[in-house]
């Protein structure tokens, strides 16, 4: 992993949950709050920041090139301002922001966030799926978030992969038992469903990413057989 510091801006329930979930992924996790009263909170080491462009103090402490910023300020106007402030200072910083609505999400994207999680829409999607498609919801939840034997993985096509330069439609996936390929992602296209017309005509190239579902061992076998590796960098949003 190239990003080794997680910078969480905002001290609230969201940032605490984020901290719990991402602290094992990074060497360092830093929480920054706009309010000085939060700095005394027991159990967490919280730094102070303001919305001026003075990030020197923060830069002294961490390597900004190896950082990901999580912007979770509850006041959406300040969150947008924070994102635009970070983006104007650090062109290549990866920024993930939380928005309450789609409208705010659009503003955050315009302000330069790489990825925005619209809180209301995402929660509503999860509730709807829970009620209307309980089986698929449970299975997807298990695949994504629980320690289930079934995994979803993204596999990057390497130089040596024997899929390279093959048209996607000509590949017989049934040779790879236990694996279901869901989609492919290329530099100049979004993630495309494997049966979409665009994906079918696509010629597999180096650095393409396949999204596959399967049991852990089957995925490992698949990686070996096609000569590719699991891919864990999320910087494709910068593409």
């Amino acid at each position: 992993m190239s990003d080794t510091t997680a910078l969480i801006f905002g001290y609230n329930n969201y940032s605490i949950e984020m901290l719990k979930n991402v602290e094992h992924e990074y060497d360092k996790v830093k929480i920054y709050s706009l309010y000085e009263k939060d700095l005394k909170t027991e159990g967490y080491s919280i730094g102070h920041f303001d919305l001026s462009d003075n990030w020197q103090e923060m830069e002294d402490d961490i390597d900004i090139k190896k950082s990901v910023a999580f912007c979770v300020l509850e006041e959406m106007d300040k969150n947008v301002f924070l994102v635009i402030s970070l983006r104007s200072t650090y062109e290549n910083l990866s920024i993930i922001a939380v928005a309450s609505h789609k409208e705010d999400a659009n503003k955050l994207l315009m302000a330069g966030a790489n990825k925005v999680i619209p809180l209301v829409e995402t929660t509503a999607d999860i509730i709807t799926n829970m009620l209307e498609n309980p089986i698929s919801n449970d299975i997807l939840h298990e695949i994504l978030y629980e320690k289930s034997a079934l995994k979803i993985a993204q596999i990057k096509i390497g130089k040596e992969s024997h899929f390279k330069d093959e048209e996607l439609s000509s590949i017989d996936w049934s040779h790879y038992n236990g694996i279901i390929v869901l989609s492919i992602m290329h530099k100049d296209m979004k993630s495309e469903f494997i049966y979409s017309s665009k994906a079918k005509r696509h010629v597999v190239q180096e650095d393409d990413v396949l999204v596959v579902v399967g049991f852990d061992q089957d995925i490992k076998d698949f990686e070996k057989r096609i000569g590719s590796n699991r891919y864990v960098n999320w910087n494709h949003w910068g593409w």
């Binding site: 719990k20 809180l119 978030y145 992602m185 990413v209 891919y231 999320w234």
Partner: peptide, 13 residues
């Protein structure tokens, strides 16, 4: 949001 962030960071695609 915590769970989503974790997955987002690990396996974005």
């Amino acid at each position: 949001i915590g769970l989503i962030t974790k997955e987002l960071v690990g396996q974005p695609v």
